[in-house]
Amino acid sequence: MIELHNVSKTYSNGTKGLNGINLTIAHGEFVVIVGLSGAGKSTLLRSINRLHDITEGDIRIGSQSITKAKGSQLRRIRRDIGMIFQSFNLVKRTTVLRNVLAGRVGYHSTLRTILGRFPKSDIELAFQALDRVNIVEKAYSRADQLSGGQQQRVAIARVLAQEARVILADEPVASLDPLTTKQVMDDLKKINTELGITTIVNLHFIDLARQYATRIIGLRAGEVVFDGPVSEATDERFAEIYGRPIQKDELLGEPVAEVPVS
């Protein structure tokens, strides 16, 4: 369970990134956060694993407060939260397998990981993770030889190998084409339902959010302006949230599955 109590973030130049956010996200939910760019989606997500520090309030992961955690305690909490990024954030010059194994470093001592002595079970875990996202045959390829969609799947495998209990995905499909977008979102959904990993995703596309989420949170100017099930997230409500009608670039378009295969 993730709890946010009165979370606010004020940047050093005085602008408010987040403003008095209260949320409780239960185990196993698939939450999609939507909002215009600059609404604070990314700040909110990065506050949860403290890539960004908040200026007010408290964020609790399970029973522990990540806001107050320090040093190894903070690293222990982060180990349970996997993150997926818009730009994949793989080390491009190293192999896929090594990128996935990087997700395991939080479990071992610094010295052991630097010497490259990952236990056999870790390597097995990495292969299984790669297998789950259907990319195991690329294990020894260099990450920069893969396409964007494949790289994002490696990033998902890294989170799986991390054995995270929560996955945060910050615009995971923003740099992908519609077809690979669907594959990556399907992977995330499958992991969510099969392994019961709580998943929080930032998305730009409203129709994609409706297609995959169990719960949608709308942000505007750092405040929660919508929080409810998909059935309530109608176009009319979104028009209200955004203060204007939905625009074409906020929709991905027809579901890809319906495109006839030639």
Binding site: R75, F85, A102, R158
Partner: peptide
């Protein structure tokens, strides 16, 4: 590229591990 650093930090890596797994492979060549 700061991206891999963020990925390592968010998986709970220590400072040395971030250097070894995210910085070093980028700068070695």
């Amino acid at each position: 590229d700061r991206g891999p650093l963020e990925a390592l930090i968010s998986s709970g890596a220590s400072r040395m591990q971030v250097l070894w797994f995210a910085v070093l492979p980028q700068v070695l060549p």
